[in-house]
Every structure is written in structure tokens, then in C-alpha cells.
Amino acid sequence: MSSIPLLPGISSQMVATPRLTIHVRSSGPTTGTPVLFIHGNNSCATFWEETMLALPSGFRALAPDLRGYGDTEFQPIDATRGCRDWVDDLLGLMDTLAVERFHVVGHSLGGSVCWTLLATAPERLLSLTLAAPGSPYGFGGTKDVDGTPCWPDYAGSGAGLVNAEFARREGAGDRSEDEPKTAPRVIMNTYYWKPPFRPAREEELLSGLLSIKVRPDNHPGDKVASEHWPGIAPGRFGPNNALSPKYVGDSVERILAAANKPPILWVRGANDQIVSDASLFEIGTLGQLGVVPGWPGADAFPPQPMLSQTRRVLERYAAAGGTFRELVLAECGHTPYLEHPEEFNRALHSMLGS
């Protein structure tokens, strides 16, 4: 069923849920404690296969391709709901599989989905492990640890900032290294992990990156004009708009107010270029570096302090009765579970067994 070859020990199936038919990879005993793995943007669940196989005995790994990615039935993302389409899909999947409570592991965009899942159904989560997650305030367009928007229309976030040529090459299934600034393979090997690391399953992971559905109602998504720098505000469709703080920022107070507060593990690479306080994929950083002209300055639009925002929210979470641990891996980029699997798995397995 999977269009990408599976590692031995991984199986896959199509699961019909009330919302859509979801492609799910799985491993481990069917009676094991469930662990739900949520992949990042420009990828799919194939990225989790080694981590799934490394789970201790007694655990069941479930890794779906999110809506808009991989082999899951395509339906458009309503970005005005933030990450709630994905969360509703995942809860519908777990209901269909008769799974009431489960551990969750989310990477990058999958970490952003986790924030909304934590705000929506914390009573169903046994634990939450965040691998290089997006900020709980969304991606782009905010300027302090409390997620204050730079502009009232959230200009500087959303799909309008996606490199159109990179998206075109994704849609064309381009596996070359030609014109490296927009080559999906080069982008993956430069930013997903810290060079010179190259994964053993590079071809399968590149297939996962290329599995995102490039079409007008998904990726890169729509945009609207803005009077504010850089002249683009978020639209209504696709994953990059769904990550805008315009649509996801309400999760934080719901997380803090919830009675249920599962333990949280936050694992990140010290050299992450995608999610950081100076992200090379964020318009404030690019403006400050002079890559994008017209930057209005640090008072109006500083680089988004993504890590500081996450840490501040987790500190407030702990003060409200929850617990968290932050683990920073040296010589590591945006994908700690692939770059340093032994350290990542040690921390994850400790969380699962606690």
C-alpha cells in the first residue's frame, strides 16, 4: 500500500475514518501500548520508521501520513482552523482503531500539530515528545516570547513566503541537484540535518519530501496582499498558512488552562537552522540579514524567537502543574531522531516508561 519501500518490520494499511482514508505505517504488537508518530512538513511518515522499530517491547507504533502528504487520501487543509483539521483527522483515526489513550511523538510541523492536540484532547495523551517542534505561537510574524504579532494582519507569515520554484520542483518529483538553491535533495541535506550527515535511507526520505501534494489548494498555498512588510499576509488553504500565528495562536491558553497535563519531553538539535531564534526560513531573520529588502528593523519585525517562545510556554506549563524536560543534542540539526538515534531513543524510551 505504501508508495515508498518499507523497512522490514514495518507494515502499512489504509484506514477508512469518518473524515478521510489515512495511510498508516505500524510496527510492534497489536496489543502494545500505542505510540502515535506525527511527521513534519515536506515529508511523510517514512521518516519515523527507524524510530518505530527501536521502540521497546510492549509498544505499538502508529505513524500516519497527514492530510496533504504521502499516501493518505487528499483533502484540502482549511488553514483558518490552524492545525485542527490534522488533529481531528488523528483523533478520528485513533477512534477508528479503538485507541483511547496513547503516547505522542511529533516532529517540526508534527510538533505544531501536537500543541493543538494538547489543547484539544489532553486527557487522551499519556505523554508528549516534541522533536524540533514549531513554536506554539506558529511560524513567522511574531516578535517576543509571548507571541505578540508584528502586524495586525500577521503579514510575514503563511504560504506567500514559500519559494515557488522549490514547490514547483517538489511537484515535478525533481530528484536532481541541479540549481542547488531550490533543489529538494540539496535543501533536505543542507537543512533537515547538520552536514555532513547523510541518512542511509536518503532516497526513501527524499521520496517522503516529494510526497507533499503540490496543487493550488494545498502547497504552497494562497496569499493575500498586505500594506505591511514584506507585503504578504496568510491565505486560507494549505499547510504553510495553517502554521500562521493568525490561526494557531489560541492553543497556548487552552493548554495552560487544561486540567490534564501529560509530561512533555522537548528534544532539539543545537544547530537547527529551521526552528531556532534565528531561523533561516523565517522572514525576520532574512530581513535582518538583508536577504529580503525593506526590513523595518528589529523593533517592528525582529527574528521570531521560536525557541524562547517554546521554553516560555513550557515554563508556564510547569508552573500550572505540568512537567517538561528539554534535551539539546550537540552537532545536530532539525531531525534529532535520525541524526542521533541512540540519544533520542534513550530519552524517548525513558519518557514512555515513566
Rank of each mutant, 00 (worst) to 15 (best):
L6T: 10
L6P: 10
S12N: 10
S12Y: 00
Q13W: 00
A16M: 00
L20N: 05
T21V: 14
T21G: 11
V24D: 02
R25Q: 13
P29D: 08
T30S: 15
T31M: 13
C44L: 09
C44H: 06
C44I: 09
F47Y: 15
E49G: 15
E50M: 13
M52D: 08
G58A: 03
G58Q: 09
A61Y: 03
D65Q: 05
R67K: 07
Y69E: 02
E73D: 12
F74T: 12
P76M: 05
C83I: 01
D85I: 09
D88S: 15
D88F: 10
D95L: 11
D95H: 04
T96H: 02
V99I: 15
R101H: 10
R101P: 02
V104K: 00
V105L: 05
G106W: 00
H107Y: 04
L109K: 01
C114S: 15
T116H: 11
E123N: 14
S127G: 14
P133H: 06
G134I: 12
G138Y: 02
G140M: 02
D144Y: 01
D146W: 05
P149H: 00
P149E: 04
C150W: 04
Y154W: 07
L161H: 03
L161F: 03
L161P: 11
N163I: 07
N163P: 07
R169V: 14
G171K: 06
G171H: 09
E177K: 09
A183N: 06
K194Q: 11
P196Y: 12
R198L: 10
P199N: 14
P199H: 15
E203S: 04
L206D: 09
L210C: 04
L210W: 09
P216I: 01
D217Q: 09
A225I: 02
S226P: 02
E227F: 07
P230M: 03
I232T: 05
L243I: 13
P245R: 00
V248S: 07
V248C: 14
G249K: 13
G249L: 06
I255K: 02
I255M: 11
L256W: 07
A257Q: 14
D277G: 06
D277Y: 05
E282Y: 03
E282A: 11
I283V: 14
G284Y: 05
G284E: 01
L286S: 07
L286W: 05
Q288N: 06
G290N: 01
V292R: 06
V292T: 08
G294L: 08
P296A: 01
G297L: 04
A300R: 08
P302M: 11
Q304P: 08
S308K: 15
R312A: 15
Y317Q: 10
A318V: 06
A318E: 12
R325S: 14
L327D: 10
H334C: 11
P336W: 04
Y337D: 03
L338H: 14
A347E: 13
A347F: 02
A347H: 11
H349D: 08
L352K: 01
